[in-house]
């Protein structure tokens, strides 16, 4: 009995090797699945849901200004502290009032300051892409970009100013749209 089972196990062992060779041979004949990166890129449907670095969402009517209300919630919630909002206080000019400056007007003018966003700095080097800032934004002024092909020579290249980025994007977009409108008109 033991002799029989031994020869049986030897036969099975040798057969298992042949099965292994068969499987690799089958895979050898199948097409490759590599994406040849510089020449090909990942299909865009696979990038659905991809979270790149954050970007500002513009106001629906004005593509040059973000929805951001400068509440600083994103900067405080960020675990890595990589968001910094640079703001300045600007007095509000009230044009509708009469030109004479009474004392009352001066008092109110002192009080009426408006915060203005100068820069929205993101240090992408320290970002861990957790998404807490996007989730916590009270006016939905943040979203994830789809920038996937990021490479640079220094870490300074990844310190973004998202406001400047938004404006540059809007400029490009409007420059594209303008000639179309002109041709239509």
């Amino acid at each position: 009995m033991s002799n029989y089972s031994k020869s049986q196990s030897i036969r099975e062992g040798i057969w298992s090797l042949i099965v292994g060779l068969k499987i690799t041979a089958k895979n050898f004949l199948k097409p490759t699945i590599t994406v040849h990166y510089p020449r090909e890129t990942v299909p865009t449907d696979k990038l659905e849901g991809y979270r790149g670095h954050i970007e500002l969402v513009p106001k629906p009517k004005d593509p040059f200004t973000p929805k951001c209300i400068m509440c600083n919630l994103c900067a405080t919630v960020c675990p890595s502290g990589c968001i910094k909002l640079v703001t300045v206080k600007e007095p509000i000019e009230e044009k509708s009032k009469s030109g004479t400056n009474t004392q009352e007007d001066k008092k109110t003018a002192k009080k009426k300051f408006k915060k203005k966003l100068v820069a929205f700095e993101l240090n992408y080097n320290y970002c861990s892409l957790c998404g807490l800032c996007v989730q916590n934004c009270s006016v939905k002024s943040l979203r994830f970009s789809k920038d996937i092909y990021l490479a640079g020579y220094s870490k300074e290249e990844f310190e973004y100013d998202l406001l400047a980025r938004l404006r540059a994007k809007a400029k490009v977009k409007s420059a594209k749209e303008l000639p179309q409108k002109n041709s239509e008109g």
Binding site: S128, L129, Q135
Partner: peptide, 19 residues
């Protein structure tokens, strides 16, 4: 990746649900 946003180091669950 489609639903969590990342491929390896997921940060998907939140207190009281998922993101």
């Amino acid at each position: 990746q489609r639903i969590t946003g990342s491929r390896l180091t997921y940060c998907y669950y939140r207190f009281g649900g998922v993101s």
